[in-house]
Amino acid sequence: MTELAVKAHGVGKQFTGRRILQDLDLEIRPGEFVALLGRSGAGKSTLLRIFGGLEPDYEGDVLVPRRRAVVFQEPRLIPWQRVLPNVSLGLKPTRDVTKQSIAALAEVGLADHAKAWPVTLSGGEAQRVALARALVREPQLMLLDEPFGALDALTRTRMHALLHALCERHQPAVLLVTHDVDEAIILADRALVLRDGQLTLDVPIELDRPRERGSREFIELRTRLLAELGVTEEITE
């Protein structure tokens, strides 16, 4: 049996009678970058929250690593703590932790913002702090819940490059929840589509990097994913 970062079997979840997830199986290997696509309300975030330990009542069997980190769509920084203690939130404040937190901030290019208040950061900066906060834990599993959804297109592109570089270096298993098909193809090793409570598509993405949106393989894959999501290109373009 190969080693796994996520082993979920028969996962189900319902909210007050409405079934969101049904008998879902998913395995993620260590270091694998998986993008989870789905329409709004399909249950993507719910699945991620189950893996993050934020949904208490679910059905099935879920095994996840002890060291996990979540990056939400909003940065969720603690407003009354400066940037550095936000990064080391929940860790024992030893000298090593401080050093690692500063290093993590440096990795996302914000070393000189360690003493800033969160409210003074731009949206992109705040999300980079949230990334640093996830990284400093050296997670075996990173759970990203539409982390770039609220950012402008330019910032998002830069964040894609940053996230890719960080994942290359730290090699966590990643589950990226997104509704952006291009984002999934650019970043992930594997794309999943969640539909009617189950994973209806599971494709490896084997395009060479850097991945170009204009390439034939990119467009083919995008068309296939969009079709699975119930969207045809003519409508979206």
Binding site: G52, G53, L54, A69, F72, R76, I78, L89, G90, R137
Partner: peptide, 19 residues
């Protein structure tokens, strides 16, 4: 949302209350 963030980053009951 902040309480949730604290939980996912390892704050336990009294840590959440205090921080």
């Amino acid at each position: 949302k902040l309480v949730e963030a604290g939980q996912t980053f390892g704050l336990r009951k009294w840590g959440l209350v205090r921080k």
